[in-house]
Structures are given as C-alpha cells and as structure tokens.
C-alpha cells in the first residue's frame, strides 16, 4: 500500500497560473474563459497526484481547515480579485453596491464545488467533472454579469426620479 503525502496546493496554484499565461490565447480570453482555463488547468495538474489531492479534499468534516486549502483559498481570492477588476472594466461583470463584496465568495464556492465533485467523480477520464466545470463557471459568471435585475433597479431609480416631471 502506498502512503499518502500532504499535497502542495500552493505549488499547484502557482504552476497553474504560469501555464495559463504561456498560452498566447489566454490574454484575449474574456474573464469567464480565463476562469475556465484556470480551473481546467488546475484539475489537470492535481490529476498528476490524484490520490493525495482526493484524500485531502475529502478529508473529514472540515477539509478547508487544512493549511494547504487555507492557502489555496487565499491565493484563489487574490487571483479572482484581478479577474473581477478586469471584468468590471470590460463590462462583463456588473459592479453592484454591497453585493459586489461577495463576488469572491461566489467564485470560491463555485471552485470548491468543482473540486469536491472532481474528488468524488468516478466517470471515465473524469469527464463528468468537465461538464461540471462548464456549468458551474457559466452559472456563477451569469450571476455576476449584468442581468434583468440590474436593469430593473435602473428602471426603478429612473422611474422615481422622472416621476416628478409628469405631475
């Protein structure tokens, strides 16, 4: 029986970011695609040491109490900070007062959901995880993107403001 070693999440994180940047298409990607590229690359990298990472992710009730995952969370948040900034500038992400503070949390939860799914995925070549990545990232970025609620709020603000003129 092989013994499990503690996997190095920080090293994998750094490697993932480095690999993403070597792809010349990465710069032109939308922030949504950048996130997809990051997650796919991350999963490829942890697959090389699958048993260790799986054990670590599945560990007892509170896996994120491990130092490795705490570090990963911190690194991931820094990474998404940049993405959110970039997305807000390009118009892909809607800057909303107060709620915008939770964008990082939304993305981290999405990422953690994917990791947890991956660790328990028994499909061939873990192809179900690929489907999950696409669906989860699209869903979370759809939450962040400008949507009907934003234009609803915008409409309401304008209606209140302009209502006075029709009196």
């Amino acid at each position: 029986m092989t013994t499990l070693t503690t996997p190095d999440f920080t090293a994998v994180f750094n490697k993932t970011v480095a690999i993403c940047h070597t792809d010349e298409n990465y710069v032109q990607y939308s922030v949504r695609e950048k996130m997809l590229a990051f997650v796919f690359t991350f999963l490829q990298n942890i697959a090389a040491q699958e048993a260790d990472f799986t054990a670590s992710i599945q560990k007892n009730k509170y896996p994120w109490q491990q130092q490795g995952l705490k570090d990963l969370k911190a690194n991931f948040k820094k990474f998404t900070d940049d993405l959110i900034f970039e997305g807000t500038n390009s118009g892909e992400i809607q800057a909303r007062p107060l709620i915008a503070n939770y964008y990082q949390t939304i993305l981290w939860n999405a990422f953690w959901t994917i990791l947890f799914f991956w660790a328990n995925d028994k499909s061939n070549y873990k192809e179900n995880s690929d489907v999950m990545v696409e669906k989860t990232i699209h869903f979370s970025f759809d939450l962040l993107a400008p949507n009907a609620i934003d234009s609803g709020v915008d409409w309401l603000q304008n209606y209140i403001k302009l209502r006075t003129s029709i009196k």
Binding site: Y29, D130, E134
Partner: peptide, 18 residues
C-alpha cells in the same frame, strides 16, 4: 458549443498535447 478552454482541455486529456 464547448468553451475554448474545454476544447484545449479535451486535447490535453485524450492526446496529451494542446
């Protein structure tokens, strides 16, 4: 349609190269 990162991922997974 598959996203571009997933297209690349598919190649890496099944052929091992982008």
């Amino acid at each position: 349609a598959l996203s571009e990162p997933l297209v690349v991922n598919t190649f890496l997974k099944y052929i091992g190269k982008p």
